[in-house]
Amino acid sequence: MKDLNINELDRKFQEKIDNEIKIEPKDYMPEAYRKTLIRQISQHAHSEIVGQLPEGNWVTRAPNLRRKAVLLAKIQDEAGHGLYLYSAVETLGADREETIDDLHSGKAKYSSIFNYPSLTWADMGMIGWLVDGAAIMNQVPLCRCSYGPYARAMVRVCKEESFHQRQGYEIVTKLATGTPEQKEMAQESLNRWWWPALMMFGPSDADSKHTAQSMKWKIKRHTNDELRQQFVDVTVPQAELIGLKVPDPDLKWNEETGHYEFGEINWNEFWQVVEGYGPCNKERVDARRKAKEDGAWVREAANAYAEKRAKRKAS
């Protein structure tokens, strides 16, 4: 190793990536690769944890016992995803609590979609169908990500997300085929969530600062715009099937390309939410910060007790 200079190490690293060999925690990796992964995986973990909040908002009001249990189980899965992902971050030498502090200080981001409010029961359906649906589009390629621990975490996460997506679509289907009030509840909810769901794929390729490097490192396999198009192509027929209308006057099927054409995203809104000024940014971060602050005495007590116990054992 000593004889290899950094350029040589970097060359070998890229060679491994080009040959689809996974990078493991103890392998050499360029500092920028490590940093990119810490940023991306911790943001992903934060998204799972913050994502508990808009859904948790409806647990106590779920309409029947079955829906309540399913919703709770789903949110519990999301918290579990947060746990694996924080563990994956720790394999890169980062500290879980420090990355969480970055979330609380506003330094670290999370998926902007969770800065929108969940206002009706139909939103529980939309979050599963659209938000988890979009997350799957993003995450399935991550199962082949060049970093081993992240890729392996994603395999399990994707299995659960696909169940979440189906339960969301089931909620929406039940509403769309229910009473006129229920159908209206579903349509109104789709009207609010459609565009934010498209924004989940990030800025357009022209404005995405991380895409090119991440693709070279095979952290990312498709561009934002490719994934967004794939999502539209899959989701529009699902909406039509249950009689809901996608709120985009420019939406039309293009026979030649075999894809839907869709209207322009409101990028002002996108950047406003990313910058921290969306409808619920403040509430979400405040809720997470409050949970940590309110729990400080509990964590201190657990540590103090563990120390006492260790001492008693030793003596």
Partner: peptide, 19 residues
């Protein structure tokens, strides 16, 4: 207990209380 969902003092306990 379900009111704790998303607000537990530590992630592991958030999951435990939801469970």
């Amino acid at each position: 207990l379900s009111e704790w969902c998303g607000h537990g003092p530590v992630l592991e306990e958030d999951i435990a209380l939801t469970n």
